[in-house]
Lab assay of single mutants.
Amino acid sequence: MSIQHFRVALIPFFAAFCLPVFAHPETLVKVKDAEDQLGARVGYIELDLNSGKILESFRPEERFPMMSTFKVLLCGAVLSRVDAGQEQLGRRIHYSQNDLVEYSPVTEKHLTDGMTVRELCSAAITMSDNTAANLLLTTIGGPKELTAFLHNMGDHVTRLDRWEPELNEAIPNDERDTTMPAAMATTLRKLLTGELLTLASRQQLIDWMEADKVAGPLLRSALPAGWFIADKSGAGERGSRGIIAALGPDGKPSRIVVIYTTGSQATMDERNRQIAEIGASLIKHW
């Protein structure tokens, strides 16, 4: 067993022997301040990774656009098919120029040779490549099948209805392509620590998230040296922004954090800054 596999296998073990965790309302004060600064709703939840206990939450059962955070769930569904012998990570998928959609920095470079399922998941999570996500959605049967996968996990809230990039439209009061912070946090925890996926697939999923290259201005910008984070960000229309993450000190994750916002007129930089400040408060009061 590799060191990384050992780390993920012992996530519940280490967490069980940690000192009790206590909620700190100071972080919620910052979440509410972010709402004021952005002029928009902000949803927040913080779960203990081992027990699933909610440590703090704000608007945990209000719907927010998922945006690209759905790509972690998508690759979880792909990995479940791999575990069941219905898919192979090494299978190569070929596609054409007509398949390319807006923001496809990886797939646009491989029109000639195609990409493997493993490479597509890596591109979808680490670079948020939209064509990679659409190609992977095709392998599982489309958005409705991802929703069905989530329902089978016990998540009857999260739903995907459309493809990239239309799913980022974020129309107010439109339930399409949305989740709730509580539902997303619980589902992410199941994917990373539950028995739904094999140990190898859980490790692969967290490795992809740990290698995320496009979430630097968010929670990662607030992390002290030595902290662990595996995350996936999302951005959408109407001032929408979000991030889902597993993080913790001492090089291992111990909490799940989900943050979503929508309806702001603020710039992307300002949305990023507010999420980073929430992260800084979380870490300060850990």
Results as ranks from 00 to 15, higher is better:
Leu19Ser: 15
Asn152Gln: 15
Phe70Asn: 05
Ser281Ile: 13
Ser254Asp: 13
Leu136Pro: 00
Pro60Arg: 12
Val157Glu: 12
Thr179Cys: 05
Thr138Leu: 12
Ala185Glu: 00
Leu197Phe: 06
Leu74Val: 11
Pro25Thr: 11
Met180Phe: 11
Gly114Cys: 04
Arg118Ala: 15
Arg189Ala: 14
Leu49Thr: 08
Asp250Ser: 14
Val257Asn: 01
Ala215Phe: 03
Ser281His: 12
Val214Thr: 09
Leu136Thr: 04
Gly226Leu: 05
Ala183Lys: 08
Val157Pro: 02
Val29Pro: 04
Ser104Pro: 02
Leu205Asn: 01
Thr262Ser: 11
Ala185Gln: 00
Glu108Cys: 07
Ala23Asp: 05
Trp163Cys: 11
Pro65Ser: 05
Ser233Asn: 01
Gly52Leu: 05
Leu188Ile: 13
Ala16Lys: 06
Arg238Thr: 09
Glu119Ala: 10
Pro253Tyr: 10
Val82Ile: 10
Gly154Thr: 05
Glu237Cys: 12
Asp83Leu: 02
Gln86Asp: 13
Tyr95Met: 07
Ser2Met: 12
Leu150Phe: 10
Gly226Met: 07
Ile3Thr: 11
Trp227Ile: 02
Ile11Ser: 07
Ala215His: 04
Ala148Gln: 14
Gly39Val: 10
Phe70Met: 14
Ile45Tyr: 10
Ala133Arg: 00
Thr193Val: 15
Lys284Asp: 14
Thr198Tyr: 07
Leu120Met: 11
Asn152Pro: 04
Gly194Cys: 11
Thr261Tyr: 06
Cys75Gly: 09
Arg41His: 15
Pro60Ser: 13
Ser281Tyr: 15
Gly90Leu: 10
Gln88Pro: 05
Asp212Arg: 04
Met127Asn: 08
His24Lys: 15
Ala124Asn: 04
Phe6Asp: 05
Pro25Ala: 06
Glu277Gln: 11
Asn98Phe: 15
Thr69His: 07
Glu87Asn: 05
Lys30Glu: 07
Gly154Lys: 07
Phe13Asp: 01
Ala9Arg: 08
Met184Arg: 00
Glu210Tyr: 10
Leu120Gln: 02
Pro172Ile: 12
Met127Tyr: 11
Ser240Asn: 07
Gly251Ala: 12
Gly236Tyr: 01
Asp129Met: 00
Thr158Lys: 00
Leu191Ser: 03
Leu188Ser: 06
Thr186Val: 14
Ala276Arg: 13
Pro25Val: 12
Ser281Leu: 12
Ala222Gln: 14
Glu277Lys: 11
Thr267Met: 11
Tyr260Lys: 00
